[in-house]
């Protein structure tokens, strides 16, 4: 049983989606996350244990990403393998027998149309067991405020690529904090730093998707 769980972890880390997937080359023809999850659930490995195995795989790939051993494409393949697992787990989430760690509201701030970084964070955070509410790009403060109202207890993530939209990011952080002081806000994007995040009143700064996951997990 533990070997099955370890295989699943490895498939997530390596981005091995299913048996038909040609990636990674050295695992060609072998079962992937899809088949292993189905088998695990058939063999009475609980959905919580499956989810934990996957989270471990995502943690490992995230750490390798942080060490520049792998790059965004590998991270996205891992997220895709995770998605295959989530398709099996969805009924358990819907029935309430497995619970998401929490809600994460994510959007690119007003004035900025870039979404690749945000999407990447969304996939990795979701793969780590969080419900992600993706507000899209060019999001004005009210859109975040409405989403926070609709998801009590959520955490908010703001993304920006442009230096010049950081002012909008600061306004959104302040707006959220004024109305919902208890809501934790993390910011990220190319022009940001931990200092800039602190100055604008954010609770955290994510240098990469794994940074966002670490911040989120620290709040649970």
């Amino acid at each position: 049983m533990s070997e099955l769980v370890e295989q699943l972890t490895m498939c997530i880390e390596r981005g091995k989606i299913n048996a038909a997937a040609p990636y990674p080359a050295d695992l060609r023809g072998r079962e992937g996350a899809d088949e292993l999850t189905a088998r695990a659930l058939r063999e009475s490995v609980g959905p919580d244990a499956v989810l934990a195995a996957c989270n471990e795989g995502m943690r490992r790939i995230g750490e390798r990403f942080g060490r520049n051993e792998v790059f965004v494409p590998e991270l996205l393949m891992a997220a895709k393998a995770m998605k295959a697992v989530m398709a099996h787990l969805r009924p358990f989430f819907q029935s309430g027998s497995v619970k998401a760690k929490g809600s994460f509201i994510l959007g690119t701030v007003a004035g900025d149309l870039h979404d690749i970084g945000k999407n990447l964070v969304a996939m990795v955070v979701e793969g780590n067991g969080w419900e992600v509410v993706d507000l899209g790009v060019d999001c004005k403060p009210q859109k975040f405020v409405d989403a926070v109202k609709a998801h009590p207890g959520c955490t908010v993530g703001l993304s920006a690529l442009l230096t010049t939209t950081m002012a909008n990011m600061e306004k959104i952080v302040k707006e959220i904090k004024e109305q919902f002081p208890e809501v934790r806000v993390i910011v990220g994007g190319a022009p940001l730093s931990a200092d800039a995040a602190a100055k604008m009143g954010a609770d955290g700064y994510g240098a990469d998707p794994q940074g966002a996951v670490a911040f989120l997990n620290s709040t649970t």
Binding site: P73, L76, K80, I116, N119, L120
Partner: peptide
């Protein structure tokens, strides 16, 4: 591509 479940290729294209 990203919407169709091919995020890695979508990222390469972007």
């Amino acid at each position: 591509l990203t919407g169709d479940g091919e995020p890695a290729l979508g990222f390469v294209v972007d």
